[in-house]
């Protein structure tokens, strides 16, 4: 008996629409993030994460409206990431009804931003998103570094050290994405997940690479993640959140059912 491991579906939102087309039979508009969020809530999602990938600054308001609408009818924690660069961005998201914000490149550009954000709004709502890629050669000890721009740009920063630093600066949670695995459907980078989870005192969300339900379970049992995040396996309705939870429970993992 204890704390449940969390399953977090992630919606990529571009200009207020869910991208990577969602295939649910029982929703009218599969591109409407509000409808999709409602569906995940019904299926028992523990939290929902919105990743705003809108490229132009002018259209950023659309995500605020999405969060407002979802927050007025879905009563589970909501996280918004993408384009969070200033304290004002965080304030707007929290006022719209988000419970947490994900900070990624802004933290790399200026780590003190995380400190300021945690001091102003509390660590409980500051999630630092880390995109890591393996840089060690095959015969070397495993080593990962932080990459930006969707994994194209290296920074030379060690991922484990960076995670520790972000926690020292006030991150209340780490959202860890393996850029080697993201989109591959081969499963999480479990060694990376384990290394980060062992290194920090705060909860770690594993992300990147989920292709089946066993992958989700492995993130918890082998990667020691506190929560697992996935997009496509839920979007394409291959599996429901409920099925994922039942599978994890059958393997002895504590979940909220």
């Amino acid at each position: 008996m204890g704390l449940a491991k969390r399953i977090i579906p992630c919606l990529d939102v571009d200009n207020g629409r869910v991208v990577k087309g969602v295939k649910f039979v029982d929703i009218k508009d599969a591109g409407d993030p509000v409808e999709v969020a409602r569906r995940y809530d019904r299926e028992g999602a523990d939290e929902i994460t919105f990743l705003d990938i809108t490229a132009t600054h002018d259209n950023r308001d659309t995500i605020v409206h999405v969060v407002e609408q979802v927050a007025s009818e879905v009563f589970i924690p909501l996280t918004v990431g993408g384009g969070i660069r200033e304290l004002e961005d965080i304030r707007r998201m929290l006022n719209a009804g988000a419970d947490k914000v994900g900070i990624n490149s802004a933290a790399i550009f200026r780590p003190e931003f995380v400190k300021e954000a945690a001091e102003k709004f509390g660590s409980q709502c500051i999630v630092v998103a880390i995109d890591a890629k393996k840089v060690s050669a095959k015969d070397e000890k495993d080593r990962w570094e932080i990459f930006t721009h969707g994994g194209r740009k290296e920074t030379g920063i060690d991922a484990v050290e960076w995670a520790k630093k972000m926690v020292d600066f006030g991150a209340g949670e780490i959202l860890l994405t393996s850029m080697d695995r993201d989109g591959t459907r081969e499963g999480f980078d479990l060694t990376l997940t384990r290394a980060i989870s062992d290194a920090v005192s705060v909860p770690v969300i594993a992300s990147g690479g989920v292709g089946n339900l066993d992958h989700l379970a492995e993130g918890v049992t082998q990667g020691k993640a506190d929560a697992v995040l996935a997009a496509s396996i839920f979007h394409f309705a291959e599996y429901s959140v409920e099925q994922a939870k039942q599978h994890m429970q059958s393997l002895g993992i504590e979940v909220r059912l």
């Binding site: 204890g2 449940a4 491991k5 949670e173 705060v202």
Partner: peptide, 20 residues
């Protein structure tokens, strides 16, 4: 800061998520 579960895994602080 050094609390562990029955299987020896470190329990994270903050206590975050769904509990009974």
């Amino acid at each position: 800061t050094d609390i562990t579960d029955s299987d020896g895994s470190r329990l994270k602080i903050p206590h975050m998520g769904w509990n009974k």
